[in-house]
Amino acid sequence: MRSAPKEDDMAKAILVVATHPGIGLTSTVLGLYHALDRKGVKVGFHKPVMQYDVESQDVDHSRAVLLHSSRAVGDDALVIRPEAVQQALDADNLDELMETVIQNFEAAKGDADVVIMEGLLETPNVPYAGECNRQIARALGADVILLSDARVSSVARLENRLDFAANAFGGYDKGHLLGAIVNYADGAGALSRAEIENSKAFNANFKLLGIVGSRPEIAAPRVSDLQQHLGATVLFEGESSTRRILDYVLFARTPANAADFLKPGYCIFQPADRDDALMATTISAKAGNNLACLVLTGPLPASDVVMNLCKPLIEEAKLPVLHLGTSSWEISKLIEKFNRYIPV
């Protein structure tokens, strides 16, 4: 394999690699991109290898999000598909594949001085992620930023995760490991900022580049995202575009027994013909209990009389109200398939 182009010949590549899935890799890459952009850096985005979603076998959701939110070349021909990686591994021919990685990078960089790249996530379907990330970094002469998660039992656990990830790139002494970003600090059951800052993992060679606090509401899907997924009818739009869903409740109890489940951020599913439940939910919303939304279910519509009584409360509370003509069992299956990634 030919060596990586000299720095004078190409943009500086930065590869962001997560220590494990589910810790905000895409949002971190997006945040890093915009932070550099605000500093006046000519920054671009490129994902060398596509990684399919679990639910879809032909879409890389994170790449779609980042292409939508950045100045990047969206040519699919410049992204290597997983099948090609697997074939190269089977044939023990990764060097030739890395030639393609270099060519694609040079074609995709545009006029950027710095190109942020999202690394592959290690999953059961992508067991080669670690080796592929390592080879890409070597081929492009990329600097590497590790991303980890403060939701661990101890600082030692965080350090072990960083050690393992750093060793895959040759260890902390290698100059191309810039440092780490740690997400979800200060949340319930997570390390504090002070604990992270005092970790022995960070030093002059491997810096703590950033700590992101825990804000579950940011990662939570919006009501409008759920409405599009379910194909539900909008009865009252309310604050559908801004309210976020922290949890879901199938409302089947009497109002007195269900009061504990009428909590801020909750999406309430209830049969449309349960007048008592409808009134209890709208009263709760009007009282300042900032519910995410109300989804009326089943083939029967809500009573016009009761809906007219509730309408002023719903409008004043800006409560999104949807209707879905399906059963609770079917709803539970739809929720399981709900894509909770950042919407494109």
Rank of each mutant, 00 (worst) to 15 (best):
A272M: 11
K333F: 03
P127V: 07
V59H: 10
G31S: 14
G187T: 06
E315Q: 14
R38G: 02
G189E: 03
H176M: 11
F269G: 10
P301H: 09
V43G: 08
V234G: 01
A4G: 11
R134D: 09
A259D: 15
E336N: 14
N133R: 02
S214D: 15
L89P: 02
F251Q: 06
L235R: 14
R215Q: 13
L89V: 08
P271F: 03
V223R: 03
P299V: 11
A285K: 00
H34K: 14
N203A: 06
A91F: 03
D173Q: 12
G170V: 09
L178R: 14
A72N: 04
R38H: 09
A112P: 08
K263H: 09
N290D: 15
D37V: 05
N257M: 11
R243K: 13
A64H: 11
P264S: 06
D276Q: 13
A18Q: 13
A18L: 05
E96M: 09
K42L: 11
V152D: 07
H68T: 13
N167D: 13
D275P: 02
H34F: 08
R151P: 01
E83Y: 07
L230W: 08
K337L: 11
P124V: 02
R340H: 12
V305E: 14
G130C: 05
G31R: 02
V155T: 15
G44P: 03
C310Q: 14
S327G: 00
K333A: 10
A188P: 08
R2P: 13
D173I: 05
G213P: 00
K333H: 13
C132G: 01
N183V: 04
M117K: 08
N289P: 00
N104A: 10
G325Q: 15
F261I: 06
F105T: 06
G265L: 07
F202H: 11
D90F: 09
C267E: 01
G40Y: 04
D75F: 06
I181A: 02
L89H: 10
S70L: 03
V234Q: 06
I196E: 00
S69G: 00
N203K: 09
V41Y: 01
V144Y: 04
G187H: 06
A280S: 15
L162I: 04
E118H: 07
A142V: 09
A91Q: 12
S154L: 07
G141M: 06
A190Y: 04
A11D: 10
R274H: 12
L246G: 15
E316P: 00
R138V: 07
S148Y: 01
H323R: 15
A84I: 10
A280M: 03
P271Y: 06
A190L: 08
A258Y: 08
A285R: 00
S332Y: 01
S153N: 13
Q135W: 04
M10Q: 15
V212A: 15
A258F: 07
D111R: 10
L322T: 00
N290A: 14
A129N: 05
A259M: 12
P343F: 03
D75M: 04
A64T: 14
N104P: 05
I335C: 08
D186W: 00
L235N: 02
E96L: 11
D58Y: 13
L319R: 03
L226W: 13
R243D: 01
Y184G: 00
R222G: 08
E239T: 09
L296G: 00
V144R: 03
L177P: 07
E118P: 02
H20G: 09
A280H: 01
Q57S: 12
S332I: 09
K200Q: 12
I211W: 10
P264E: 07
F338D: 00
L209V: 01
V16A: 05
